[in-house]
Structures are given as C-alpha cells and as structure tokens.
Design a protein around this nucleic acid. Sequence first.
DNA 1: TTATCACTCGACTAAAAGGGTCACGTCAAC
DNA 2: GTTGACGTGACCCTTTTAGTCGAGTGATAA
Lengths: 164, 164
Amino acid sequence: MRLTSKGRYAVRAMLDLTVNSNGNPVRLQEISNRQNISLHYLEQLFRRLRNGQAVKSVRGPGGGYVLARSMDEITVKDILDCVGENINPAKDIIGSEAETANTPEFHISKDYFQNLGVIMKEYLQTTSLGDLIRKSREKDLGGRPDAPTDTPEPKPGYNMGTPI
Amino acid sequence: MRLTSKGRYAVRAMLDLTVNSNGNPVRLQEISNRQNISLHYLEQLFRRLRNGQAVKSVRGPGGGYVLARSMDEITVKDILDCVGENINPAKDIIGSEAETANTPEFHISKDYFQNLGVIMKEYLQTTSLGDLIRKSREKDLGGRPDAPTDTPEPKPGYNMGTPI
DNA sequence: TTATCACTCGACTAAAAGGGTCACGTCAAC
DNA sequence: GTTGACGTGACCCTTTTAGTCGAGTGATAA
C-alpha cells in the first residue's frame, strides 16, 4: 500500500480545477503556477485522470481540462485510483505470499490489514471534491480564530473506540 | 505513506514468536521455516525490533528472541514503527511541499490526509499482539463453517457513516 | 578450551517505484 | 498557417524494497 505525493498532487490539482473552472476549461499551466507543481508532471497526472474518466480535455486555444462529472460525483478515491495510488494494504499479498505461507499467523495479519483497507477505502470513497470544498468554506467562515486548526480532529462520524 | 510486505512480515514474525514462545527464546531459524521468510531478512527485521525495544535477544545455544513486554503491551503500530513503516499519509508533506504552495487547496488536502492518518494510527495503535491472537482463537472456536470469512467485515466499533 | 549455536553488524545488490523531464506529436481556432 | 493547448512515449535520476553475504561476538556445554 502506498499513499504518496502523487495522490496528493492529483487531489490538489483537481481541487484547483474545481474551484477555478466555471464551466470553462482550465489550463494546466495555470494549475501549475498556482499549485507550484511541475507542468510536465501535471500532464502525466491528467493523462491518467482523463483515462480514468475523471476529467475531459478541450484542445486548442481556450482549451484545458474540465471535470467529467459534477464535483459531488467525483470522490477522492476516484482520483487516487486514476493516478494509480494503491490503497489496499493487503493487495500485494495476493499472489506473492499467499501460497508460500499458509500459517495461522499469515491469515491473522492478512485479515487485519485487509480490514484496515476497508476502513481507508470507506474514508476515501465517501468524500467528494464538493465535500472538501464545502468543508473548507465552513472553516473559513465559522472557524475559531484562536485555534490553529493545524491538528485535524477525527471526524465525528468515526468511533475509534474498539478496533478489534 | 507506505505499508509494504516488510511491515506484514514483521507482524507475522512477531505473532509467530508470541505463539511459539512459552517464555523461552525462539530461534529465527524456526520462524523462518514456519513462516517461509528468508532468515537473513528476518535478522534485519529483528535487529530493528530489538532496537525499538519490542523484543529482547538471548545469545548462545538455546538462545533466540523473546518479547520485550507482554503480548498485550505490544501494538501493531509499535511493530510497524520499529521496522520503519511510515504510516502517516501526510508526513512527507512537511518540509517538501509545505512552503512551496500555500494555497487553500494545499491545506484542504493536507488536513484531509492528516485526518486519514489519525484514523489509521488509531486502528493500528489499539490492536495488540494479544488482541490478534485472541481474535483468531475466537474465530477458530465459534466460527461459522458456512461462511468463508475471507472478506473481513468492518469492525463493529467503527461507524463508517459520515467521514466528512 | 574449544566447538558450536545463535544473534550482530556492515556492506552490498537487483529490481521496482517515485518523481520529474523532454521532444515531438496532434487537434482546434483565429 | 501559426499559435495555443493537450497527447504520447521515452527517458532520467534517486530512493526504497527485498534480499544476500560474510565476518564478527557472546554464551553454553562437551
């Protein structure tokens, strides 16, 4: 399982695109300037986002990229999938270790990490670009200026009490 | 953030050690045979587990490794930390991107991924070796033989409803 | 006192992944 | 037909992973 800057770059670029497009195509050059991400690297990422049907491209002058669906129909997980972020902590178990060790310990840890994957997937799948943008607007308006908000609080929907 | 076979190997080896030690040292050679993990690779992992105070070593004939604490005082997170698995999805943000892009989009995604890190950390930190072993014993005894149990169900303690 | 057992340590390797760059396309509009 | 922008494949360097190797050191027992 990996979650690297590639995925965060993609999410960031998609947020930028969402915010700065008003139905109009947004050029990668703009996103590159605003987000300080290499243009060539963005091209690579958006190639994958386009293949994954997350964005559509418009060529020629005045062209750029637009979301392929509404911002509420594109989840973070969609984006990570497009750029090839592998979220499942147990995925590479299949085929590499599965048959080489059929011990109880193997199954215990496999089940345990698979369940972590379920939790992560749920987290990423239930958040859309729209959710993120609305959340940040809320924060700007109703934020507590005395709190740094640097440390994220666990979401209220999650009960962290008894993971086993 | 990475969660690779290194971490799973370590957890598996620690489970093996826990189950097969009765206060006595367990040789890496045994673990290697049972779990089908390269002996030399195990040596590397246990070096780190020892440096991280998760196990103690006993040298000489009859030697091997024993847990440094009880199985209920060693969490999965402890083990992953020892072998160098980086669990925080937002960790490598600090210092590499932080100052180069101070955009709202950057902060949105940073907070979001940091919160995922909190959730993952909580999951890994609240599970001890003892928890895993007891859980697997329960399954063996009270298991439903008609259900394959291959697909892990989300833990009852987690409410997956509203992650944002 | 020496053989042996088992951990200890540093160095090394091949392969993969991550992050990024480049040159050269092609399509569309003015 | 030139310019703006995406499209594509190939390439690059660095770090990490997973694994190997060989020469130790410390403890036990014959």
